[in-house]
Simulated scan of single mutants.
Amino acid sequence: MAEDTMNGAAARGRFITFEGGEGAGKSTQIKLLAERLNAARIRTVLTREPGGSPGAEIMRHMILSGIGSLIGGPQAETLLFAAARDDHVHSVIEPALAQGSFVLCDRFSDSTRAYQGQMGEVPPALLNAMQRVTIGDLKPDLTIILDVPVEVGVKRARLRRGTTAPDRFEAESLDFHRRLREAYRQIAADEPQRCVLIDANAKVKTVAGKVWAAVQQRLLSSKVDQVQPA
């Protein structure tokens, strides 16, 4: 529990990441989970990647504008993500975990492995080197991978942005997004102890119930298991 203490110091918090393709509903589900954790009197910090800290937000604009793909392709994007993640981890994530908060992050290192690794064919050696530098031994305690059919996710993303131009990744082809979906499903299959694959092609409350059940089962103590979400 985030509220427990040991030797007068707050117990370390838990790190939960949300992953999935475009339009999977990550932002919505993070907000709903935060409400439920707060109802259980667990401190939460919501953040996102790329971004989440002042320095990383600057990098976010560069990445989503497509500058990385123009100046050097996926490898350049990988370096930009690494710089943003380093600032994010040290400025926001680690301090919040040290204070006992649950950190809920919209995308993390799995996104780099799916987008730049699987889709951009960036060598695993480079990805591993960047990970050692930026996050070291930090790994999510739980990763929720929201899975939706590509056509559904792309339609949701289009409706969400309205008349705004698609960003660097939203503008990719349907084939790109299909292969991206398979990359995420493979991550879930490879690391079942950390990852939970959830069918997000359902009503928001249904998906939220599955997310809450996964968090209860994996991370919460028995005295919190009985908390009924609003």
Rank of each mutant, 00 (worst) to 15 (best):
P140R: 09
G21T: 07
T164Y: 01
A129Q: 14
G136F: 06
S221F: 01
T17I: 06
I42Q: 15
V152L: 02
T47L: 15
R179V: 06
V211R: 01
R160N: 04
F169N: 08
V207C: 02
P166N: 12
L197C: 12
R158L: 07
V215L: 08
I58F: 03
A129M: 13
P95I: 06
A214S: 14
R48T: 12
I144T: 07
K31E: 02
F169M: 14
V89A: 03
K139A: 13
F169Q: 06
G25A: 00
R158P: 03
L180I: 03
G23E: 05
R60L: 11
D137A: 15
R60I: 10
K223Q: 09
E3R: 04
Q99L: 15
A129P: 04
F18H: 03
L126S: 06
H177Q: 05
V152K: 09
R43S: 14
A183N: 08
A9Q: 15
G25V: 07
G23R: 00
G8D: 03
W212G: 01
E151C: 07
S91C: 12
E170H: 06
G117Y: 08
P95V: 10
V45W: 09
L97P: 14
V196A: 05
C195H: 14
A2V: 14
K139F: 05
R178G: 04
A114W: 10
D141L: 04
A200P: 14
L220T: 02
Q118V: 14
G209P: 03
L219T: 08
D87Y: 10
P123G: 06
G162K: 04
I198W: 06
E94F: 00
L32K: 08
A96M: 08
D110S: 10
R12I: 07
P229F: 10
L70R: 13
V45I: 15
N201D: 15
L127A: 07
F102S: 11
A171Y: 01
G72P: 07
R48E: 15
S91Y: 00
V204H: 00
P123W: 05
A10W: 01
A40K: 04
L70T: 14
G120D: 13
F176L: 08
P149L: 09
P149Q: 11
E49L: 04
